[in-house]
Write a protein that binds this DNA or RNA. Sequence first.
DNA 1: ATAATAGTGTCTATCAGACATTATCTG
DNA 2: CAGATAATGTCTGATAGACACTATTAT
Lengths: 276, 276
Amino acid sequence: MMKEVRNKDGLTEEEFLKAYNPGDYKRPSVTTDILILGMNEDYSGLKILLIKRADHPYLGSWALPGGFIEEDETAHQAANRELKEETGLEDIYLDQVYTFTKPGRDPRTWVISIAYLALIPELKKVEGLDDAADAAWFDLKFTDDTIELLNEEKDVQIIYELKKETFYNGVIKYENYIPDKVSEDSLAFDHVEILIEAMKKLREQIRYSNQAFCLVEDKFTLPELQAVYEAVLARPLYKKSFRDMISNLVEETGSEKTSRTKSGRKCKEYRFKMEG
Amino acid sequence: MMKEVRNKDGLTEEEFLKAYNPGDYKRPSVTTDILILGMNEDYSGLKILLIKRADHPYLGSWALPGGFIEEDETAHQAANRELKEETGLEDIYLDQVYTFTKPGRDPRTWVISIAYLALIPELKKVEGLDDAADAAWFDLKFTDDTIELLNEEKDVQIIYELKKETFYNGVIKYENYIPDKVSEDSLAFDHVEILIEAMKKLREQIRYSNQAFCLVEDKFTLPELQAVYEAVLARPLYKKSFRDMISNLVEETGSEKTSRTKSGRKCKEYRFKMEG
DNA sequence: ATAATAGTGTCTATCAGACATTATCTG
DNA sequence: CAGATAATGTCTGATAGACACTATTAT
Protein backbone atom coordinates (compact mmCIF):
# COMPACT_ATOMS: atom_id res chain seq x y z
CA MET A 1 0.00 0.00 0.00
CA MET A 2 1.12 3.52 -0.82
CA LYS A 3 0.23 4.64 2.66
CA GLU A 4 2.74 2.20 4.13
CA VAL A 5 5.74 3.77 2.43
CA ARG A 6 8.26 4.86 5.05
CA ASN A 7 10.51 7.90 4.81
CA LYS A 8 14.19 8.16 5.75
CA ASP A 9 13.25 8.28 9.44
CA GLY A 10 11.23 5.11 9.07
CA LEU A 11 7.89 6.84 9.47
CA THR A 12 4.70 6.10 7.58
CA GLU A 13 2.74 9.07 6.27
CA GLU A 14 0.32 8.82 9.16
CA GLU A 15 3.13 8.81 11.70
CA PHE A 16 4.89 11.63 9.90
CA LEU A 17 1.83 13.89 9.88
CA LYS A 18 1.19 13.19 13.54
CA ALA A 19 4.76 14.17 14.42
CA TYR A 20 4.92 17.13 12.04
CA ASN A 21 5.89 20.32 13.79
CA PRO A 22 4.48 23.34 12.02
CA GLY A 23 6.57 25.69 14.12
CA ASP A 24 9.74 24.97 12.19
CA TYR A 25 9.34 27.91 9.86
CA LYS A 26 8.42 31.45 10.71
CA ARG A 27 5.05 32.34 9.26
CA PRO A 28 3.65 35.61 7.89
CA SER A 29 0.18 36.97 8.42
CA VAL A 30 -1.79 36.93 5.18
CA THR A 31 -4.41 39.50 4.22
CA THR A 32 -6.44 40.35 1.15
CA ASP A 33 -6.67 43.94 -0.06
CA ILE A 34 -9.33 44.82 -2.61
CA LEU A 35 -9.60 47.46 -5.27
CA ILE A 36 -13.33 48.06 -5.55
CA LEU A 37 -14.05 50.04 -8.71
CA GLY A 38 -17.23 51.44 -10.20
CA MET A 39 -18.19 54.19 -12.63
CA ASN A 40 -19.34 57.57 -11.28
CA GLU A 41 -22.84 58.97 -11.72
CA ASP A 42 -22.42 60.37 -15.24
CA TYR A 43 -19.89 57.76 -16.41
CA SER A 44 -17.19 60.40 -16.76
CA GLY A 45 -14.71 58.52 -14.59
CA LEU A 46 -13.94 55.75 -12.13
CA LYS A 47 -14.66 55.65 -8.42
CA ILE A 48 -12.75 53.62 -5.88
CA LEU A 49 -13.78 52.65 -2.38
CA LEU A 50 -11.34 53.59 0.39
CA ILE A 51 -11.40 53.07 4.14
CA LYS A 52 -10.05 55.54 6.66
CA ARG A 53 -7.81 53.79 9.13
CA ALA A 54 -8.92 54.00 12.75
CA ASP A 55 -5.77 52.61 14.35
CA HIS A 56 -2.03 52.51 14.03
CA PRO A 57 -0.18 52.18 11.81
CA TYR A 58 -1.20 54.87 9.29
CA LEU A 59 -3.94 56.08 11.68
CA GLY A 60 -6.11 58.55 9.77
CA SER A 61 -4.76 57.58 6.35
CA TRP A 62 -6.97 56.13 3.65
CA ALA A 63 -6.44 52.52 2.63
CA LEU A 64 -7.83 49.76 0.44
CA PRO A 65 -10.43 47.63 2.21
CA GLY A 66 -9.14 44.26 3.25
CA GLY A 67 -8.75 41.74 6.03
CA PHE A 68 -7.05 38.65 7.31
CA ILE A 69 -7.59 35.26 5.70
CA GLU A 70 -8.99 32.55 7.94
CA GLU A 71 -7.65 29.03 7.91
CA ASP A 72 -10.85 27.49 6.58
CA GLU A 73 -11.37 29.77 3.58
CA THR A 74 -9.67 30.61 0.30
CA ALA A 75 -8.27 34.08 -0.32
CA HIS A 76 -11.08 34.52 -2.85
CA GLN A 77 -13.68 33.76 -0.21
CA ALA A 78 -12.01 36.19 2.18
CA ALA A 79 -12.07 38.90 -0.47
CA ASN A 80 -15.71 38.19 -1.24
CA ARG A 81 -16.57 38.37 2.44
CA GLU A 82 -14.82 41.71 2.79
CA LEU A 83 -16.51 43.00 -0.35
CA LYS A 84 -19.94 42.10 0.97
CA GLU A 85 -19.21 43.69 4.33
CA GLU A 86 -18.22 46.95 2.69
CA THR A 87 -20.73 47.22 -0.15
CA GLY A 88 -23.44 44.66 0.51
CA LEU A 89 -22.82 43.28 -2.96
CA GLU A 90 -22.49 39.63 -3.92
CA ASP A 91 -21.91 37.72 -7.16
CA ILE A 92 -19.82 40.43 -8.74
CA TYR A 93 -16.59 40.31 -10.70
CA LEU A 94 -13.64 39.55 -8.41
CA ASP A 95 -10.21 38.52 -9.60
CA GLN A 96 -6.84 37.96 -7.98
CA VAL A 97 -4.27 40.49 -9.16
CA TYR A 98 -0.92 40.00 -7.46
CA THR A 99 0.58 39.02 -4.14
CA PHE A 100 2.69 41.61 -2.37
CA THR A 101 5.49 40.34 -0.19
CA LYS A 102 8.07 43.07 0.28
CA PRO A 103 9.65 42.77 3.75
CA GLY A 104 8.65 45.68 5.98
CA ARG A 105 5.53 46.59 3.99
CA ASP A 106 3.63 46.49 7.28
CA PRO A 107 5.45 47.98 10.29
CA ARG A 108 3.59 45.75 12.75
CA THR A 109 4.84 42.38 11.67
CA TRP A 110 5.50 40.15 8.67
CA VAL A 111 2.40 40.55 6.49
CA ILE A 112 1.89 39.53 2.89
CA SER A 113 -1.14 40.67 0.97
CA ILE A 114 -3.06 39.03 -1.84
CA ALA A 115 -4.56 41.83 -3.93
CA TYR A 116 -7.99 41.50 -5.60
CA LEU A 117 -9.85 43.61 -8.11
CA ALA A 118 -13.63 43.97 -7.88
CA LEU A 119 -15.72 45.65 -10.58
CA ILE A 120 -19.22 46.74 -9.62
CA PRO A 121 -22.02 47.89 -11.93
CA GLU A 122 -23.44 50.53 -9.57
CA LEU A 123 -22.15 52.49 -6.64
CA LYS A 124 -23.59 51.60 -3.26
CA LYS A 125 -23.86 53.92 -0.29
CA VAL A 126 -21.07 53.04 2.10
CA GLU A 127 -20.53 53.87 5.72
CA GLY A 128 -17.82 53.25 8.24
CA LEU A 129 -18.09 49.86 9.82
CA ASP A 130 -16.82 48.26 13.03
CA ASP A 131 -13.08 48.88 13.07
CA ALA A 132 -12.87 51.41 10.25
CA ALA A 133 -13.29 55.10 11.06
CA ASP A 134 -14.88 55.89 7.74
CA ALA A 135 -15.48 54.62 4.21
CA ALA A 136 -16.00 56.65 1.06
CA TRP A 137 -15.96 56.59 -2.73
CA PHE A 138 -13.10 58.55 -4.27
CA ASP A 139 -12.82 59.85 -7.80
CA LEU A 140 -9.94 57.94 -9.36
CA LYS A 141 -7.86 59.40 -12.15
CA PHE A 142 -5.04 57.15 -13.30
CA THR A 143 -3.09 58.40 -16.30
CA ASP A 144 0.46 57.93 -17.54
CA ASP A 145 1.66 60.81 -15.37
CA THR A 146 -0.49 60.87 -12.26
CA ILE A 147 -2.73 59.09 -9.84
CA GLU A 148 -5.37 61.29 -8.27
CA LEU A 149 -7.76 60.15 -5.56
CA LEU A 150 -10.23 62.89 -4.66
CA ASN A 151 -13.17 63.20 -2.31
CA GLU A 152 -14.57 66.71 -2.25
CA GLU A 153 -17.07 66.12 0.51
CA LYS A 154 -14.34 65.01 2.92
CA ASP A 155 -11.83 67.44 1.44
CA VAL A 156 -9.24 64.73 0.80
CA GLN A 157 -6.78 64.85 -2.08
CA ILE A 158 -4.28 62.06 -2.56
CA ILE A 159 -2.01 62.72 -5.51
CA TYR A 160 1.02 60.87 -6.84
CA GLU A 161 3.14 61.77 -9.82
CA LEU A 162 4.28 58.79 -11.86
CA LYS A 163 7.65 58.26 -13.41
CA LYS A 164 8.32 55.39 -15.76
CA GLU A 165 11.16 53.01 -15.09
CA THR A 166 12.18 50.25 -17.46
CA PHE A 167 13.61 46.98 -16.25
CA TYR A 168 14.29 43.61 -17.77
CA ASN A 169 12.79 40.26 -16.94
CA GLY A 170 14.87 37.81 -18.90
CA VAL A 171 15.16 39.50 -22.30
CA ILE A 172 11.78 41.21 -21.95
CA LYS A 173 11.61 44.92 -21.31
CA TYR A 174 9.03 46.10 -18.82
CA GLU A 175 7.82 49.55 -17.91
CA ASN A 176 7.03 50.21 -14.30
CA TYR A 177 5.37 53.22 -12.73
CA ILE A 178 7.24 54.75 -9.79
CA PRO A 179 4.85 56.82 -7.66
CA ASP A 180 5.98 60.04 -6.03
CA LYS A 181 3.63 61.57 -3.47
CA VAL A 182 2.91 65.24 -4.10
CA SER A 183 -0.10 65.76 -1.81
CA GLU A 184 -0.21 65.93 1.96
CA ASP A 185 -2.55 62.94 2.20
CA SER A 186 -1.34 59.54 1.07
CA LEU A 187 -2.48 55.96 0.88
CA ALA A 188 -1.55 53.64 3.74
CA PHE A 189 1.04 50.86 3.48
CA ASP A 190 2.11 49.99 -0.08
CA HIS A 191 -1.44 50.45 -1.34
CA VAL A 192 -0.39 52.85 -4.12
CA GLU A 193 1.66 50.04 -5.57
CA ILE A 194 -1.27 47.66 -5.33
CA LEU A 195 -3.43 50.26 -7.05
CA ILE A 196 -0.87 50.65 -9.83
CA GLU A 197 -0.54 46.92 -10.45
CA ALA A 198 -4.28 46.36 -10.50
CA MET A 199 -4.92 49.26 -12.87
CA LYS A 200 -2.09 48.16 -15.18
CA LYS A 201 -3.55 44.68 -15.33
CA LEU A 202 -7.08 45.97 -15.93
CA ARG A 203 -5.84 48.15 -18.77
CA GLU A 204 -3.98 45.31 -20.43
CA GLN A 205 -6.89 42.93 -20.14
CA ILE A 206 -9.95 45.07 -20.84
CA ARG A 207 -9.37 44.83 -24.57
CA TYR A 208 -9.35 41.06 -24.76
CA SER A 209 -11.56 40.19 -21.81
CA ASN A 210 -15.07 41.45 -21.14
CA GLN A 211 -14.38 43.21 -17.88
CA ALA A 212 -15.98 46.44 -19.15
CA PHE A 213 -19.38 44.74 -19.00
CA CYS A 214 -18.93 44.37 -15.23
CA LEU A 215 -18.84 48.16 -14.86
CA VAL A 216 -22.18 48.87 -16.56
CA GLU A 217 -25.67 47.79 -15.57
CA ASP A 218 -27.14 44.81 -17.39
CA LYS A 219 -28.91 47.14 -19.84
CA PHE A 220 -26.71 49.91 -21.12
CA THR A 221 -26.11 52.27 -24.02
CA LEU A 222 -23.03 52.23 -26.24
CA PRO A 223 -21.97 55.71 -25.12
CA GLU A 224 -22.00 54.38 -21.55
CA LEU A 225 -19.96 51.33 -22.49
CA GLN A 226 -17.49 53.46 -24.41
CA ALA A 227 -17.18 55.74 -21.37
CA VAL A 228 -16.10 52.69 -19.35
CA TYR A 229 -13.32 51.85 -21.80
CA GLU A 230 -12.21 55.46 -21.93
CA ALA A 231 -12.17 55.79 -18.14
CA VAL A 232 -10.06 52.65 -17.76
CA LEU A 233 -7.70 53.41 -20.64
CA ALA A 234 -7.61 57.13 -19.79
CA ARG A 235 -7.79 58.09 -23.46
CA PRO A 236 -10.57 58.81 -25.96
CA LEU A 237 -11.59 56.14 -28.46
CA TYR A 238 -13.02 56.68 -31.91
CA LYS A 239 -16.73 56.04 -31.79
CA LYS A 240 -16.99 54.03 -34.97
CA SER A 241 -13.96 51.85 -34.29
CA PHE A 242 -15.19 51.23 -30.78
CA ARG A 243 -18.62 50.19 -31.99
CA ASP A 244 -17.15 47.88 -34.63
CA MET A 245 -14.91 46.34 -31.99
CA ILE A 246 -17.68 45.43 -29.54
CA SER A 247 -20.45 44.86 -32.09
CA ASN A 248 -20.38 41.08 -31.81
CA LEU A 249 -20.42 41.18 -28.01
CA VAL A 250 -23.68 43.09 -27.64
CA GLU A 251 -27.25 42.93 -28.88
CA GLU A 252 -30.05 45.49 -28.90
CA THR A 253 -32.84 45.08 -26.38
CA GLY A 254 -35.26 46.94 -28.64
CA SER A 255 -35.79 49.75 -26.16
CA GLU A 256 -34.34 53.22 -26.08
CA LYS A 257 -32.87 55.01 -23.13
CA THR A 258 -31.32 58.29 -22.11
CA SER A 259 -27.65 57.71 -21.38
CA ARG A 260 -26.25 58.59 -18.00
CA THR A 261 -23.43 60.20 -19.96
CA LYS A 262 -23.80 63.82 -21.09
CA SER A 263 -26.60 63.24 -23.53
CA GLY A 264 -27.99 64.96 -26.62
CA ARG A 265 -30.55 62.45 -27.74
CA LYS A 266 -31.90 59.06 -26.82
CA CYS A 267 -29.78 55.96 -27.32
CA LYS A 268 -30.50 52.43 -28.31
CA GLU A 269 -30.34 50.13 -25.33
CA TYR A 270 -28.07 47.07 -25.45
CA ARG A 271 -27.33 44.02 -23.41
CA PHE A 272 -24.30 41.76 -23.20
CA LYS A 273 -24.56 38.89 -25.64
CA MET A 274 -23.73 35.78 -23.61
CA GLU A 275 -23.26 33.36 -26.51
CA GLY A 276 -20.75 35.53 -28.40
CA MET B 1 3.48 65.68 14.71
CA MET B 2 1.89 62.80 12.87
CA LYS B 3 3.80 60.35 15.02
CA GLU B 4 2.15 61.71 18.16
CA VAL B 5 -1.39 60.87 17.05
CA ARG B 6 -3.00 58.57 19.61
CA ASN B 7 -5.44 55.77 18.86
CA LYS B 8 -8.63 54.85 20.73
CA ASP B 9 -6.56 53.23 23.48
CA GLY B 10 -4.52 56.39 23.88
CA LEU B 11 -1.38 54.89 22.36
CA THR B 12 1.08 56.63 20.05
CA GLU B 13 2.24 54.68 17.02
CA GLU B 14 5.50 53.82 18.76
CA GLU B 15 3.69 52.51 21.84
CA PHE B 16 1.21 50.63 19.67
CA LEU B 17 3.89 48.84 17.68
CA LYS B 18 5.75 47.93 20.86
CA ALA B 19 2.60 46.41 22.33
CA TYR B 20 1.44 44.76 19.09
CA ASN B 21 0.85 41.08 19.53
CA PRO B 22 1.37 39.23 16.26
CA GLY B 23 -0.12 36.07 17.72
CA ASP B 24 -3.69 37.29 17.47
CA TYR B 25 -4.30 35.69 14.11
CA LYS B 26 -3.41 32.23 13.00
CA ARG B 27 -0.77 32.31 10.28
CA PRO B 28 -0.16 30.07 7.27
CA SER B 29 3.17 28.88 6.00
CA VAL B 30 3.97 30.46 2.65
CA THR B 31 5.92 28.75 -0.13
CA THR B 32 6.75 29.47 -3.73
CA ASP B 33 6.30 26.80 -6.38
CA ILE B 34 7.90 27.30 -9.77
CA LEU B 35 7.07 26.10 -13.24
CA ILE B 36 10.44 25.97 -14.93
CA LEU B 37 9.93 25.61 -18.69
CA GLY B 38 12.35 25.21 -21.58
CA MET B 39 12.25 23.87 -25.13
CA ASN B 40 13.50 20.36 -25.83
CA GLU B 41 16.53 19.54 -27.95
CA ASP B 42 14.89 19.79 -31.38
CA TYR B 43 12.34 22.44 -30.39
CA SER B 44 9.49 20.02 -30.95
CA GLY B 45 8.02 20.57 -27.51
CA LEU B 46 8.29 21.95 -24.00
CA LYS B 47 10.17 20.49 -21.08
CA ILE B 48 9.36 21.06 -17.43
CA LEU B 49 11.57 20.50 -14.41
CA LEU B 50 10.11 18.27 -11.70
CA ILE B 51 11.43 17.14 -8.34
CA LYS B 52 10.80 13.73 -6.83
CA ARG B 53 9.64 14.05 -3.26
CA ALA B 54 11.86 12.37 -0.68
CA ASP B 55 9.56 12.71 2.30
CA HIS B 56 5.94 12.64 3.30
CA PRO B 57 3.49 13.78 2.17
CA TYR B 58 3.40 12.53 -1.43
CA LEU B 59 6.65 10.59 -0.84
CA GLY B 60 7.90 9.39 -4.24
CA SER B 61 5.57 11.63 -6.25
CA TRP B 62 6.87 14.27 -8.61
CA ALA B 63 6.31 17.91 -7.74
CA LEU B 64 7.13 21.43 -8.85
CA PRO B 65 10.32 22.76 -7.30
CA GLY B 66 9.71 25.26 -4.53
CA GLY B 67 10.43 26.27 -0.99
CA PHE B 68 9.49 28.39 1.97
CA ILE B 69 9.74 32.17 1.90
CA GLU B 70 12.01 33.73 4.51
CA GLU B 71 11.00 36.82 6.43
CA ASP B 72 13.71 39.03 4.94
CA GLU B 73 13.02 38.32 1.26
CA THR B 74 10.28 38.84 -1.30
CA ALA B 75 8.50 35.88 -2.86
CA HIS B 76 10.28 36.79 -6.10
CA GLN B 77 13.66 36.53 -4.41
CA ALA B 78 12.68 33.19 -2.89
CA ALA B 79 11.66 31.90 -6.31
CA ASN B 80 14.89 33.15 -7.84
CA ARG B 81 16.89 31.47 -5.10
CA GLU B 82 15.10 28.19 -5.68
CA LEU B 83 15.57 28.51 -9.43
CA LYS B 84 19.28 29.00 -9.04
CA GLU B 85 19.59 26.06 -6.67
CA GLU B 86 17.85 23.77 -9.14
CA THR B 87 19.27 24.95 -12.45
CA GLY B 88 22.26 27.18 -11.68
CA LEU B 89 20.62 29.87 -13.82
CA GLU B 90 20.28 33.55 -12.95
CA ASP B 91 18.82 36.61 -14.64
CA ILE B 92 16.15 34.70 -16.45
CA TYR B 93 12.46 35.40 -16.99
CA LEU B 94 10.49 34.88 -13.78
CA ASP B 95 6.94 36.04 -13.21
CA GLN B 96 4.34 35.60 -10.53
CA VAL B 97 1.35 33.63 -11.75
CA TYR B 98 -1.21 33.10 -9.02
CA THR B 99 -1.48 32.43 -5.31
CA PHE B 100 -3.08 29.16 -4.26
CA THR B 101 -4.91 29.17 -0.96
CA LYS B 102 -7.39 26.29 -0.90
CA PRO B 103 -7.72 24.95 2.65
CA GLY B 104 -6.27 21.45 2.96
CA ARG B 105 -4.04 21.74 -0.12
CA ASP B 106 -1.16 20.56 2.08
CA PRO B 107 -2.00 17.77 4.54
CA ARG B 108 0.72 18.85 6.97
CA THR B 109 -0.54 22.25 7.92
CA TRP B 110 -1.99 25.50 6.56
CA VAL B 111 0.18 26.32 3.56
CA ILE B 112 -0.44 28.83 0.80
CA SER B 113 1.70 28.86 -2.30
CA ILE B 114 2.70 31.70 -4.57
CA ALA B 115 3.23 30.20 -8.03
CA TYR B 116 5.91 31.47 -10.40
CA LEU B 117 6.69 30.80 -14.03
CA ALA B 118 10.31 30.66 -15.22
CA LEU B 119 11.26 30.47 -18.91
CA ILE B 120 14.78 29.33 -19.71
CA PRO B 121 16.59 29.51 -23.05
CA GLU B 122 18.47 26.22 -22.69
CA LEU B 123 18.08 23.09 -20.64
CA LYS B 124 20.61 22.55 -17.90
CA LYS B 125 21.64 19.20 -16.50
CA VAL B 126 19.88 18.75 -13.22
CA GLU B 127 20.49 16.41 -10.34
CA GLY B 128 18.80 15.69 -7.09
CA LEU B 129 19.86 18.06 -4.35
CA ASP B 130 19.83 18.02 -0.55
CA ASP B 131 16.27 17.16 0.43
CA ALA B 132 14.99 16.08 -2.95
CA ALA B 133 15.38 12.47 -4.01
CA ASP B 134 15.70 13.31 -7.67
CA ALA B 135 15.20 16.00 -10.28
CA ALA B 136 14.49 15.59 -13.98
CA TRP B 137 13.19 17.28 -17.11
CA PHE B 138 9.85 15.96 -18.33
CA ASP B 139 8.32 16.30 -21.76
CA LEU B 140 5.25 18.46 -21.31
CA LYS B 141 2.26 18.19 -23.59
CA PHE B 142 -0.59 20.51 -22.67
CA THR B 143 -3.50 20.52 -25.10
CA ASP B 144 -7.20 21.22 -24.78
CA ASP B 145 -7.85 17.59 -23.81
CA THR B 146 -4.81 16.36 -21.93
CA ILE B 147 -1.78 17.09 -19.85
CA GLU B 148 1.06 14.64 -20.34
CA LEU B 149 4.28 14.67 -18.35
CA LEU B 150 6.68 12.02 -19.60
CA ASN B 151 10.18 10.94 -18.69
CA GLU B 152 11.27 7.87 -20.61
CA GLU B 153 14.58 7.40 -18.85
CA LYS B 154 12.88 7.15 -15.47
CA ASP B 155 9.85 5.43 -16.95
CA VAL B 156 7.40 7.92 -15.47
CA GLN B 157 4.13 8.88 -17.13
CA ILE B 158 1.85 11.40 -15.52
CA ILE B 159 -1.32 11.90 -17.53
CA TYR B 160 -4.46 13.90 -16.86
CA GLU B 161 -7.49 14.23 -19.08
CA LEU B 162 -9.01 17.69 -19.12
CA LYS B 163 -12.65 18.60 -19.09
CA LYS B 164 -13.82 22.14 -19.62
CA GLU B 165 -16.09 23.76 -17.12
CA THR B 166 -17.62 27.20 -17.57
CA PHE B 167 -18.32 29.50 -14.68
CA TYR B 168 -19.20 33.13 -14.28
CA ASN B 169 -17.25 35.91 -12.65
CA GLY B 170 -19.68 38.80 -12.57
CA VAL B 171 -21.17 38.73 -16.07
CA ILE B 172 -18.01 37.28 -17.60
CA LYS B 173 -17.92 33.70 -18.72
CA TYR B 174 -14.76 31.76 -17.97
CA GLU B 175 -13.59 28.35 -19.08
CA ASN B 176 -11.71 26.25 -16.58
CA TYR B 177 -9.89 23.00 -17.10
CA ILE B 178 -10.80 20.24 -14.66
CA PRO B 179 -8.02 17.61 -14.55
CA ASP B 180 -8.80 13.93 -14.21
CA LYS B 181 -5.87 11.64 -13.48
CA VAL B 182 -5.67 8.64 -15.83
CA SER B 183 -2.13 7.42 -15.10
CA GLU B 184 -0.81 5.65 -12.05
CA ASP B 185 1.70 8.41 -11.34
CA SER B 186 0.47 11.87 -10.41
CA LEU B 187 1.73 15.26 -9.41
CA ALA B 188 1.99 16.03 -5.69
CA PHE B 189 -0.32 18.45 -3.86
CA ASP B 190 -2.41 20.71 -6.13
CA HIS B 191 0.47 21.09 -8.56
CA VAL B 192 -1.62 20.07 -11.59
CA GLU B 193 -3.82 23.06 -10.92
CA ILE B 194 -0.79 25.31 -10.65
CA LEU B 195 0.48 23.89 -13.93
CA ILE B 196 -2.86 24.54 -15.60
CA GLU B 197 -3.10 28.14 -14.40
CA ALA B 198 0.46 28.94 -15.42
CA MET B 199 0.05 27.41 -18.89
CA LYS B 200 -3.29 29.18 -19.41
CA LYS B 201 -1.69 32.49 -18.52
CA LEU B 202 1.34 31.85 -20.72
CA ARG B 203 -0.93 31.03 -23.66
CA GLU B 204 -3.00 34.16 -23.21
CA GLN B 205 0.04 36.38 -22.89
CA ILE B 206 2.51 35.00 -25.40
CA ARG B 207 0.77 36.79 -28.26
CA TYR B 208 1.02 40.26 -26.77
CA SER B 209 4.13 39.91 -24.62
CA ASN B 210 7.55 38.77 -25.75
CA GLN B 211 7.81 35.71 -23.56
CA ALA B 212 8.66 33.50 -26.54
CA PHE B 213 12.05 35.20 -26.77
CA CYS B 214 12.89 33.88 -23.30
CA LEU B 215 12.60 30.31 -24.61
CA VAL B 216 15.15 30.64 -27.44
CA GLU B 217 18.84 31.45 -27.25
CA ASP B 218 19.88 35.02 -27.97
CA LYS B 219 20.56 34.13 -31.60
CA PHE B 220 17.86 32.03 -33.18
CA THR B 221 16.17 31.13 -36.43
CA LEU B 222 12.56 31.89 -37.28
CA PRO B 223 11.62 28.20 -37.50
CA GLU B 224 12.92 27.86 -33.93
CA LEU B 225 10.93 30.85 -32.75
CA GLN B 226 7.82 29.58 -34.49
CA ALA B 227 8.31 26.21 -32.82
CA VAL B 228 8.21 27.97 -29.45
CA TYR B 229 4.85 29.59 -30.23
CA GLU B 230 3.48 26.33 -31.55
CA ALA B 231 4.64 24.39 -28.50
CA VAL B 232 3.03 26.87 -26.13
CA LEU B 233 -0.19 27.28 -28.11
CA ALA B 234 -0.30 23.56 -28.98
CA ARG B 235 -1.41 24.31 -32.54
CA PRO B 236 0.32 24.99 -35.86
CA LEU B 237 0.70 28.54 -37.14
CA TYR B 238 0.88 29.68 -40.73
CA LYS B 239 4.48 30.42 -41.57
CA LYS B 240 3.89 33.65 -43.45
CA SER B 241 1.42 35.09 -40.95
CA PHE B 242 3.75 34.20 -38.13
CA ARG B 243 6.70 35.91 -39.80
CA ASP B 244 4.66 39.01 -40.54
CA MET B 245 3.51 39.07 -36.94
CA ILE B 246 6.97 39.03 -35.38
CA SER B 247 8.81 40.85 -38.17
CA ASN B 248 9.12 44.13 -36.29
CA LEU B 249 10.38 42.40 -33.14
CA VAL B 250 13.43 40.76 -34.71
CA GLU B 251 16.41 41.71 -36.86
CA GLU B 252 18.84 39.63 -38.91
CA THR B 253 22.32 39.09 -37.48
CA GLY B 254 23.70 38.58 -40.98
CA SER B 255 24.79 35.01 -40.27
CA GLU B 256 23.19 31.76 -41.27
CA LYS B 257 22.60 28.77 -39.08
CA THR B 258 21.20 25.27 -39.14
CA SER B 259 18.03 25.22 -37.06
CA ARG B 260 17.76 22.85 -34.18
CA THR B 261 14.32 22.06 -35.59
CA LYS B 262 13.98 19.36 -38.21
CA SER B 263 15.87 21.09 -40.95
CA GLY B 264 16.03 21.03 -44.73
CA ARG B 265 18.34 23.93 -45.45
CA LYS B 266 20.15 26.68 -43.63
CA CYS B 267 18.27 29.50 -42.00
CA LYS B 268 18.91 33.16 -41.52
CA GLU B 269 19.90 33.94 -37.98
CA TYR B 270 17.96 36.56 -36.01
CA ARG B 271 18.18 38.39 -32.75
CA PHE B 272 15.55 40.09 -30.61
CA LYS B 273 15.25 43.74 -31.52
CA MET B 274 15.36 45.60 -28.20
CA GLU B 275 14.17 49.00 -29.44
CA GLY B 276 11.03 47.76 -31.22
C1' DA C 1 17.45 14.24 -58.63
C1' DT C 2 14.49 14.28 -54.82
C1' DA C 3 12.55 15.14 -50.62
C1' DA C 4 12.35 18.44 -47.14
C1' DT C 5 12.36 22.65 -45.27
C1' DA C 6 13.29 28.01 -45.86
C1' DG C 7 11.58 32.05 -47.48
C1' DT C 8 8.30 35.11 -50.14
C1' DG C 9 4.03 36.77 -52.76
C1' DT C 10 -0.78 37.36 -52.82
C1' DC C 11 -5.63 37.35 -51.68
C1' DT C 12 -9.39 37.89 -48.23
C1' DA C 13 -11.55 39.25 -44.14
C1' DT C 14 -11.18 41.85 -40.10
C1' DC C 15 -10.07 45.64 -37.38
C1' DA C 16 -8.05 50.17 -35.47
C1' DG C 17 -7.53 54.85 -36.47
C1' DA C 18 -9.23 58.92 -38.52
C1' DC C 19 -12.77 61.91 -40.57
C1' DA C 20 -17.11 63.11 -42.45
C1' DT C 21 -22.00 62.99 -42.76
C1' DT C 22 -26.70 62.31 -41.45
C1' DA C 23 -30.25 61.67 -37.75
C1' DT C 24 -32.57 62.81 -33.64
C1' DC C 25 -33.15 64.78 -29.28
C1' DT C 26 -33.32 68.84 -25.75
C1' DG C 27 -34.00 73.46 -24.69
C1' DC D 1 -34.06 76.69 -34.73
C1' DA D 2 -29.53 75.85 -32.62
C1' DG D 3 -26.48 73.13 -30.26
C1' DA D 4 -25.34 68.67 -28.84
C1' DT D 5 -24.92 64.01 -29.07
C1' DA D 6 -26.21 59.40 -31.59
C1' DA D 7 -25.46 56.56 -35.32
C1' DT D 8 -23.43 55.28 -39.58
C1' DG D 9 -20.39 55.43 -43.97
C1' DT D 10 -15.92 55.38 -45.93
C1' DC D 11 -10.97 55.37 -46.49
C1' DT D 12 -6.24 53.81 -45.02
C1' DG D 13 -2.96 50.87 -43.09
C1' DA D 14 -1.94 46.84 -40.33
C1' DT D 15 -2.70 42.11 -39.35
C1' DA D 16 -4.39 36.97 -39.21
C1' DG D 17 -5.54 33.18 -41.90
C1' DA D 18 -5.03 30.53 -45.95
C1' DC D 19 -2.55 28.91 -50.18
C1' DA D 20 0.74 28.87 -53.66
C1' DC D 21 5.14 29.31 -55.41
C1' DT D 22 10.27 29.66 -55.53
C1' DA D 23 14.93 28.82 -53.32
C1' DT D 24 18.33 26.16 -51.07
C1' DT D 25 20.11 22.48 -48.60
C1' DA D 26 21.09 17.30 -47.19
C1' DT D 27 21.17 12.69 -48.72
